[in-house]
């Protein structure tokens, strides 16, 4: 999929661990792992809002579009 999730980079920048973020967001670490690894098929606005609020960033910092090469 050409949509890349840069959650790892933002977590590293904020020096925060995945389980801390999951705990603050109120989701399971398994679900956060699905999001981080790019296995997720969709993301809710409420989830995006929570990530942006906790990591103090913009949606564009987490989600990136990279054109697929044929």
């Amino acid at each position: 999929m050409p949509i890349i999730i840069n959650l790892d980079i933002m977590l590293a920048k904020r020096k925060m661990r995945s389980n801390e973020l999951a705990e603050q967001m109120g989701i399971t670490t398994a679900n956060l792992s699905i999001l981080k690894t790019g296995k997720a098929k969709a993301i809710r606005f409420s989830t995006l809002e929570a990530i942006c609020e906790i990591l103090d960033c913009q949606p564009g910092d987490i989600i990136e579009y990279i054109k697929e090469t044929q």
Partner: peptide, 8 residues
Amino acid sequence: KEENELTI
């Protein structure tokens, strides 16, 4: 069902 389960 898969899409629903993989919506975070």
